[in-house]
Nucleic acid binder design. Structure first.
Lengths: 64, 64
DNA sequence: TACAAATGCAATATATAATTTGCATAGGAG
DNA sequence: CTCCTATGCAAATTATATATTGCATTTGTA
């Protein structure tokens, strides 16, 4: 469940809380997705991608 | 929650049941995802994409 | 037309994503 | 050092993705 959310978020210098607000989830949810603990839903993945100007593949495809 | 799963599956001439087996879910789950009723998890989206030789963006990105 | 495979649909049950709350910790700025 | 912001962590709860079962309906084909 690894992904590029944390790296991308840091590149854009926004906090977990700011990203969380943009996609209407809690800070904890973002934290757990970044850590790879959560298996997020498609809707949420799309919301996160759009919130940071990326696509699904950019953030979630074959990140090892 | 629209997507290209059904079109892609039909192009490849496989049934819902065959796709379901490949990604280890039930036929109903595939059916509901194709209809846009379900909001699948990222893991499942990735499994479906790989099972049909596509990427996340191919199947789930900005399908209107 | 008739049969069979594929798909749709609906109710109930189960697993897990996401929330909520609270506190701990790390790091930078004054 | 002190204050403040950002992040980590953990337990209990809620919302929802997925499973299970059974039957109805469609669709292609002989």
């Amino acid at each position: 469940m690894k992904n590029n959310v944390k790296i991308t978020r840091m590149e854009q210098k926004i906090t977990q809380e700011q990203l969380a607000r943009r996609v209407h989830v809690t800070r904890q949810t973002i934290g757990l997705i970044e850590k790879g603990v959560y298996n997020p839903t498609l809707q949420l993945c799309v919301a996160i991608a759009k919130a940071m100007g990326k696509t699904l593949d950019d953030l979630f495809w074959e990140v090892d």
